[in-house]
């Protein structure tokens, strides 16, 4: 069963007092719980949050299933979200995504690579068209101004970094 860390619990409790309605704290709490649960949310996570926040589980599930930022399936250590909307698409975002997936050993969108390191998603515009093509790893700051070479190197670097830890 999933349980928030002590600090996570403190965070969720303080979020609950921040807004006019408790429901407003759902997104921030889900983010926190997703981070603590290895990058995805499941029914265990939602049940626990429902207990902690005293909000019906169905209402938390509504939010978790509405927003694509909440992963409903396990993801790799690095969840790479490649922008494939207009500008990035024209600048080779899709090809970049395919090549990086091949390098990382992922067959399909949303798959976790065999070494548990990578999951790829094509996402809609992240609002950084001037630096196309670009991507976001987990919830880190954007990785921008990519090309094929940089993209493949990024996968190799991440793999090395991930193993190092």
């Amino acid at each position: 069963m999933f349980k928030l860390s002590e600090e996570g619990l403190k965070y969720v409790k303080s979020e609950l007092t921040r807004y006019e309605t408790k429901q407003s704290a759902i997104i921030r709490s889900l983010y926190r719980a997703q981070d603590e649960n290895g990058g995805w949310v499941n029914h265990d996570v939602i049940s626990h949050l429902s207990e902690v926040m005293e909000i019906p589980a169905a209402q938390i599930e509504e939010v978790a299933t509405f927003y694509t930022m909440f992963n409903q399936k396990p993801v790799g250590k690095y969840h790479i979200q490649v922008c494939c909307t207009l500008t990035c698409g024209m600048m080779g975002g899709r090809e970049l995504c395919d090549a990086m997936m091949k390098e990382a050993g992922c067959k399909e969108m949303g798959d976790v690579s065999a070494d548990g390191m990578f999951t790829f998603s094509k996402v809609e515009c992240l609002g950084s068209c001037d630096t196309a093509p670009m991507l976001q790893i987990n919830r880190d700051p954007y990785t921008e101004n990519l090309n094929m070479e940089k993209g493949l190197q990024l996968v190799r670097d991440l793999r090395a970094r991930g193993k190092g830890h």
């Binding site: 029914h43 939602i46 019906p56 599930e61 509405f66 927003y67």
Partner: peptide, 29 residues
Amino acid sequence: CVRFCDEVPKTSELGIFNRGDRAEVGTFD
């Protein structure tokens, strides 16, 4: 139906899950 369960028996079992044309009414888990 969602509002009924929230407001009358106050049991809140129902919700609308997913988004857009994939949205469906259901119960948690």
